[in-house]
Simulated assay, not measured.
Amino acid sequence: MTTLAIVGFGKIARDQHLPALSASDRFDLIAVASRHSSLDGVDNYPDIDTLLTEQPALEAVSLCTPPQGRYQQALAAIEAGRHVMLEKPPGITLSEVEDLARRAQRAGVTLFTSWHARAAAGVEPARDWLAERHIRKVDIEWREDVRHWHPGQQWIWEPGGLGVFDPGINALSIVTHMLPQPFFLSEATLEVPENCQSPIAARLNFTDALQTPIHADFDWRQTGPQTWRITVVTDDGTLVLDDGGSRLTIGDDLKLDGEDVEYAGLYRRFAELIERGESEVDITPFRHVADAFMLARRQRVEAFIE
Rank of each mutant, 00 (worst) to 15 (best):
V97W: 01
E59Y: 03
I305R: 12
F286T: 00
K11W: 10
E132R: 14
L111A: 10
A271R: 05
A292I: 09
E259V: 11
E54G: 05
E98V: 14
P56Y: 10
A104H: 06
V109A: 10
D139A: 13
G81W: 02
D253Y: 12
D139F: 10
A292T: 13
A104R: 12
V109M: 08
W228V: 01
A107Q: 14
P285G: 10
A126S: 13
S34C: 11
E194S: 15
V175G: 01
L94M: 13
L86M: 13
P182K: 09
E79C: 06
E124A: 15
L254N: 10
A209D: 15
P89A: 07
V32D: 03
L256F: 06
E306F: 14
S62T: 13
P159R: 13
N170H: 15
R102F: 06
I230H: 00
P56I: 07
E302N: 12
N170I: 00
F9H: 08
K11S: 11
E306N: 11
S198H: 03
T93A: 11
P167F: 08
Q222G: 01
A107Y: 07
M85A: 05
V84D: 01
P66E: 10
L248F: 08
L241C: 05
L210K: 13
M178Y: 01
V42Q: 09
P167M: 07
V232H: 06
D253G: 01
R118E: 03
F293Y: 15
H215D: 06
S173D: 06
E124D: 14
M85V: 03
V301T: 13
V138T: 01
A74N: 04
G245S: 06
A292R: 09
P151E: 01
L273G: 04
F27K: 03
Q105T: 15
T231N: 02
D47F: 07
M1A: 10
P67A: 11
Q299V: 15
A209P: 02
A303C: 04
A303P: 00
